[in-house]
């Protein structure tokens, strides 16, 4: 038992150093977001800024950008997207994990194929705007290319196939339970770790997505947080590097706090997710209790 305690210490030291490795740049990010811009240009980024300035944050939150509205859109889209995405994914992944599923391999290939080949931006856009007319609507932020991801389906299928004991399903079948019932009352509760993981991935995906907004949204009322922020980043980048714009570009970005704002943008994108993390970790805990106590 003694060596066990030692083990724990070594393991913890390892994890702490890994965490530090991951956190140091984030700390830099945060402190840079609080540094004045001319200070950044003069002395570079530093871990402990001399003069703390919140000008980047006050610029972002002064109301003219509509950040609060964008937060609202992002949260709504993330919740709807994650829940429906998770439901659809599980409903497709579960049958594929069962050998009774007809055309199982063909369908798995059908899914895998979508992960490699796509029609490209223009055809996808044509279908979504001409047939489904989702441009400038909330659907645009939820449905295209995010709602279901082949990667998650295959991951989930693997989980169902490896972690759900086959005899459990068989005994339920003997008891005469319907497939839907087995799925709801047995598979879902048994699979909380994977629901937690995939749910987290969906959340990250929706939260961080700006590509759909870039493509399908031109009306600023529907800007999600990342859209709003990435638009600023993209514009700065374009204006500074475009030879077409010359000094006009410089003048246009002159009034934006540059270095610190980029960092502030990243920070305000991260914080809400930090708050949401514990929620997902509850799923893991449930998974643990079902797998009963270890070690």
């Amino acid at each position: 038992m003694k060596s066990n305690k030692l083990n724990q210490i070594i393991l913890n030291i390892f994890m702490i150093s890994l965490s530090v490795f991951c956190l140091i740049p984030i700390w830099l990010l945060f402190s840079a977001s609080l540094t004045d811009d001319s200070e950044i240009i003069r002395n570079g980024y530093s871990f402990l800024p001399k003069d703390i300035s919140i000008s980047a944050y006050s610029y972002l939150f002064d109301g003219s950008l509509g950040i609060m509205n964008a937060y609202g859109i992002t949260i709504l889209v993330t919740i709807i997207g994650t829940v429906t995405g998770l439901a659809l994914t599980a409903m497709l992944a579960y049958p594929l994990s069962r050998f009774e599923m007809p055309f199982k391999n063909t369908l798995a290939f059908f899914i895998f194929f979508t992960m490699l080949f796509n029609g490209g931006l223009v055809p996808t856009y044509l279908i979504y705007t001409n047939i489904f007319e989702i441009k400038n609507s909330l659907w645009a932020l939820i449905v295209p290319s995010l709602l279901m991801n082949g990667y998650f389906i295959i991951l989930m299928r693997t989980f169902f196939a490896t972690s759900i004991p086959r005899p459990l399903i068989e005994s339920a079948q003997i008891d005469g339970a319907k497939e839907w019932k087995i799925f709801y009352s047995m598979i879902i509760p048994l699979s909380t770790p994977v629901f937690g993981t995939i749910g987290l991935f969906y959340t990250l995906l929706y939260w961080n997505d700006w590509n759909n907004g870039l493509i399908y949204i031109t009306d600023s009322h529907y800007y999600s947080l990342q859209n709003l922020l990435n638009r600023i980043l993209q514009d700065i980048q374009f204006l500074q590097s475009s030879t077409q714009m010359g000094n006009k570009g410089d003048e246009l970005v002159a009034n934006l706090p540059l270095g610190s704002m980029r960092m502030a943008i990243a920070c305000i994108g991260i914080v809400p997710l930090l708050i949401a993390f514990p929620f997902f970790q509850r799923f893991f805990v449930k998974g643990l209790t079902i797998g009963s106590v270890k070690g």
């Binding site: 409903m91 497709l92 579960y94 049958p95 599923m101 007809p102 279901m148 389906i153 497939e179």
Partner: peptide
């Protein structure tokens, strides 16, 4: 039932 489950996806 399994087929129907997979259908929406």
């Amino acid at each position: 039932a399994l087929v129907f489950m997979a259908l929406p996806g």
